[in-house]
Design a binder for these strands. Sequence first.
DNA 1: CCTGCCGGGAG
DNA 2: CTCCCGGCAGG
Length: 416
Amino acid sequence: MERQEPCRKSPTERPVVNGERRAQESRWLGWPEASERVPAPRPLGTVPEQKRPATSAHIPVPRQRKTSDKAHMDEVMAANVLTSLSTSPLVLSPPADITSLDQYSKMWSEGPAALSSCSSSGNWSWDAPSDRSTPSTPSPPLPGDIPKTLLPSAHSDDSVEETETAHFMFEDHPVPRKRKNSVKVMFKCMWKNCEKVLTTSSGIQRHVRTLHLGRNGDSDHSDGEEDFYYTEIDVNVDTLTDGLSSLTPTSPTSTVPPPFPPAEAPKSEQTAVKPEAQLITPLSQSAPTTLCHIRSDHAYQATAPGSIPDPPALHPTGAGFSVSWQPPPVLFRGITLYPPCMAQIRAVGVMEKRLQAQHPTVIKTLTAATLSPKPATGTRKPRGEAKKCRKVYGMENRDMWCTACRWKKACQRFID
DNA sequence: CCTGCCGGGAG
DNA sequence: CTCCCGGCAGG
Ligand SMILES: [Zn+2]
């Protein structure tokens, strides 16, 4: 936990930097040109475990354990994966292709955050201090069978059934399957305003495929994308009450997976994330969404926002999944936020600035009312309030600071 | 202690 | 220019 060490003494020498690791990062921040940064291999006396992510090399692609026997299978799967990825506008772990959000390169680590922020599937439950062992993982959901690879124990083989195994990933879906004699498994379409409920997965798949995805019906070939638009529900034969309950696993907010235009517009992924029927809070909703398109801070900063924390790389101890990182909460505008919310923080910051540019008064008042009731306190240097990048992101995320902050100049992101 | 950042300096 | 840091003022 201690990275601050007084082991820097030679200005001309290789700046050992106060133990702050900082090294190869910056790349993931999507720096346009400054690609030659990446100082030499710093001695680095302290590498507090979870420091830098190993960066780069991490592809946002399903980590397939490769324990399978048939290499061929893998190929097929891979192909399948790629296909569905490129086809599907799902923001879930986009194939490192984004333009302005290059920082997505590190998706794997910020996966959950990214998911909750940019994809409108709002699974904000992640921010909650709650510690439920969420399956959250940037790994892109895949058509039917893939899950087998991802599933913890993976039932050796259930290919006998239809592909509805797909729901693996969603919170708690043990895939009941008529165990209770009074419960019947149904499949409900989750498309925006569609409430279709069918009894078979194939049925619902066809429904989704034809009515929502605009694909040609007949071909029983499902590319798996449908799986994201329907869910299983246990219909209690006696009371037939729930349905909804099973749709809203954890958060009372959003339920719909990924809303977006049908088959069309394959490219403008998050560029087209329309607010639509999201029930998320104004902040969480607007922030990340906007964040996705907003460009740069300004002045010093030339980097595009859109990335989030990036806590520590793979925890040395943790398994392969990035579920655990529980960085220290940050204080923003007097509110305690938990890491995944950094997107919000940043977004808010950016937005504030934009606002300030257009409606100085508005934000002025807003800010004033919120945190700085009195601008002048008698002394010369008002000592700007409002936490700056350093405080907000913390030393370990120094690369997320605005450039000014990194240079120990007046922060350009969180102005007072 | 810690934070924000001015002023100065290196490449 | 870009990038960094000493060091100081204000908490
Ligand atoms: Zn800043």
